[in-house]
Computed example of a mutant assay.
Amino acid sequence: MKSSLFFALICLAMNALGQSSSVARVDTGTIGGARYRIDIPANWNPKRLLMYAHGYETIKNKRGNLSGGTMESFTKKGFAVAQSAYRRQGWAVAEGVDDTEALRQYFVRKYGQPDTTFITGHSMGGMITLATIEKFPDNYQGALPLCTISGNLYQSLQNHLFAMLTTFDGLFANTVALEKLATGTGTPTAPEVIRQKLQADSLLGQQFARRFAVKYSDLPGTLWFFQEIYRDLSQQAGGNPFDNSNVLYSGFPDDALVNRRATRLAAQPKPRTFLGPYTTFSGKISDPVLLVHTTYDQLIPPADGTAYDAIVRQAGNDRLFVMKFTDGQGHCRFTPAQTEAVFDQLRQWAQTGQRPVAGEVR
């Protein structure tokens, strides 16, 4: 049940698993401890390359995250697709940036310099996409981050993931072992248990869901997944990385009650800095960036997904950024047709300099 819920949340848009009919050759192996997969299409002429960065993968997930996914949307357009599994599971933005670049360099050495190279990725892979296009602009013609946090990563995680867990822990006592999760010793509470607790006080559960703009039916899976991420972050950091000691929660029917009951956890100095060099994006881009988000996302609120607009404007690069949206109801709920449409727009923008119009993807 847990495994299926995870893939329902993260891989909703990935419905073309395995090698597609447009792929002529698959190259697999390991680089620096990171597995990789390269799909080369039959019509690979001219030599076009797409680097793909996958999303968050729960620790000890045995399926791995190197499948065909939505790669057919790109391979059938004549693009070779290269993707790294990263050298570690879980939160791996820094590793994802480095391992994706190592794979790109391997590709160039083995197959030659592509005529054009783009990068894309879903969810955490979108963060890797943004960090990569800022760090290695000369290697790409454009970037397509999808359903991702595009602002300050620490603040986004603290204000949504951590806030949901601490307030839920206070309102629905004895449901999640948050303090144990903070030390990396707790076990995430299963969605079924969370659902039972919510059903015992459905009115409070519905109020809680509205406060965080999450559908009531999505709460059990979302809270379980957030526990998985929180435990992973705490283990990597060596302790709780967030701090709500001075946070005043609002937007609930009874804010005073929530603030009395919310679990308060202080961060240690080292864990607060563990996210490393890609905590904040700079907006210093020299290639077109087309970001796409859904109007409803239980994991990454639209405000967090579209924060990059303010960052590039501050950097004076808003001419190189466009945000598009779909009416998808859930995390990364894009249809193959929508993925192809925005990828075509990015390619045309890079080739002609004609900036796409922001707005809905139809």
Rank of each mutant, 00 (worst) to 15 (best):
D138K: 14
Q141F: 08
L144K: 01
L146S: 05
L146H: 07
C147W: 01
T148L: 02
S150W: 00
S150P: 09
Y154P: 01
Y154W: 13
Q155P: 04
S156D: 07
N159L: 14
H160S: 05
L161F: 08
L161D: 05
M164K: 07
L165G: 00
T167H: 01
D169K: 04
G170A: 08
L171F: 01
L171D: 00
L171K: 00
F172C: 03
A173N: 13
N174R: 14
T175S: 13
L178M: 04
L178I: 04
E179C: 08
K180Y: 14
T183Q: 10
G184W: 00
G186S: 07
G186Q: 06
P188D: 06
A190P: 02
A190F: 06
V193E: 14
Q196N: 15
Q196A: 15
Q196D: 15
Q199G: 14
Q199R: 13
S202L: 11
Q206I: 07
Q207P: 10
Q207R: 07
F208D: 07
A209M: 08
Y216S: 10
P220M: 05
T222H: 03
T222P: 03
T222S: 06
W224K: 11
E228Q: 12
L233N: 07
Q235V: 15
Q236K: 11
G238M: 10
G238F: 11
N240A: 05
N240R: 02
P241Q: 01
P241S: 09
F242T: 00
N244Y: 04
S245L: 15
L248T: 13
L248W: 12
Y249H: 08
S250T: 10
F252Q: 07
P253R: 03
P253D: 11
